[in-house]
């Protein structure tokens, strides 16, 4: 990696006021890899670990606040998370490995970068890594690339599992920056690539994710995180679905659904959720929802399999949620 300065401020204010070409370091599970691969070339690395942002606490409204520096492992194991937001715990456990989850933080998960082969290889053209160089994933080996939300400039998939659940749960992201604090719905936090794919999200210079709020929302057992990947563990999603349904007398009340592995950001289609609400679960209803979710999908050379699989995964996930039989992340049979 290239030379960089390192600092570990002990106030958020100091951390927000940093020079250009700064990268924030939390768990380091992604940033350090990218620096070794010469993808990230920060001049300054600001380590956030001295800031106290690792609490997980109840909100007065009955929701939950997840500190940005709480680790994925601690979050997934927290009693309030496992009791009230098992969908989130499940999505976290579907990702990475125990070792990585022990290091990786919630804020870091939001800000992780794509796993696109071409982004990761500095010898290849990539608009996300080197603006204006072009997209070599298009027409290349793009089996893992996105089919939704792509642009001519970029087809890179946003790889997180956790954020798919956060999107389904309508989480809110709290930010602090040089100009103060603001909050953004998680669904609006990540950006479509359009013609500026190097901007993964709406973070402004010097802004730091401080916490993530989960609204008071319960699905009982009517939720699931279903992840399809190339091997049964420790692989990024080909297609994943986070679904939560509020069921009353076999009728869907509020419906929440988001997809991972297929989009350039966690993929949500409010119309698909609306389409489910007030209806009785049925295969044809789920098919309609799948069709709605996948509207506008575009495949490239190698990733047509995603489009073939996606509707089946959506239907299965909605069936699991409706039946109240969430997918286990340890028992690999898909019920």
């Amino acid at each position: 990696m290239r030379q960089f300065s390192y600092s570990r401020p002990d106030t958020l204010d100091t951390a927000c006021h940093t020079p250009d070409h700064t990268r924030y370091l939390a768990g380091g599970t992604n940033l350090i890899d990218l620096m070794k691969s010469d993808v990230e070339r920060p001049e300054h690395v600001v380590d956030l670990s001295a800031l106290s942002m690792s609490q997980i606490e109840e909100r007065p409204d009955g929701g939950l606040r997840l500190g940005a520096l709480a680790t994925n492992a601690d979050t997934a194991a927290h009693p309030l998370v496992t009791e009230r937001y098992p969908l989130l715990a499940s999505a976290i456990l579907a990702g990475a490995s125990p070792q990585i989850r022990n290091r990786a933080t919630n804020g870091g998960n939001l800000n992780q970068r794509t796993r696109c082969h071409y982004f990761y290889d500095p010898d290849m053209a990539c608009n996300k890594r080197s603006p204006g160089t072009g997209c070599s994933a298009k027409g290349g080996r793009n089996r893992i690339m996105a089919i939704l939300g792509t642009s001519d400039a970029c087809i890179a998939t946003f790889p997180s599992d956790m954020c798919v659940a956060l999107a389904a749960l309508n989480a809110t992201v709290h930010l602090t920056g040089p100009e103060g604090e603001r909050s953004v719905p998680l669904r609006d936090y990540h950006r479509l690539p359009e013609d500026t794919p190097w901007q993964d999200n709406i973070l402004r210079t010097g802004e730091i994710v401080t916490s993530i709020d989960l609204p008071p929302l319960s699905f009982g057992s009517h939720h699931t995180y279903l992840k399809i990947r190339d091997r049964l563990s420790f692989a990024f999603a080909i297609v994943s679905v986070a679904a939560g349904l509020q069921m009353e007398n076999n009728t869907i009340g509020k419906a929440c659904i988001a997809m991972g592995g297929v989009g350039t950001k966690p993929w949500c289609v409010p119309e698909a959720e609306a389409l489910l609400e007030g209806k009785t679960p049925s295969p044809s209803l789920f098919r309609d929802a799948a069709e709605c979710l996948l509207q506008g999908a575009v495949t490239d050379r190698d990733n047509a399999a995603k489009l073939k699989l996606a509707p089946r995964v959506i239907i299965r996930a909605l069936s699991q949620a409706a039946a109240g039989t969430p997918q286990s992340q340890t028992q690999k049979t898909i019920f």
Binding site: R115, H117, D121, M124, R141, I144, D230, R231, F234
Partner: peptide
Amino acid sequence: SLMDERVGRFMNHNFAEYHIPAHAD
């Protein structure tokens, strides 16, 4: 190993994307 024949390089050149079986497999 996924060859991008346009450049002659195997593109999934890391253990995240070159999948060897995990314990679960």
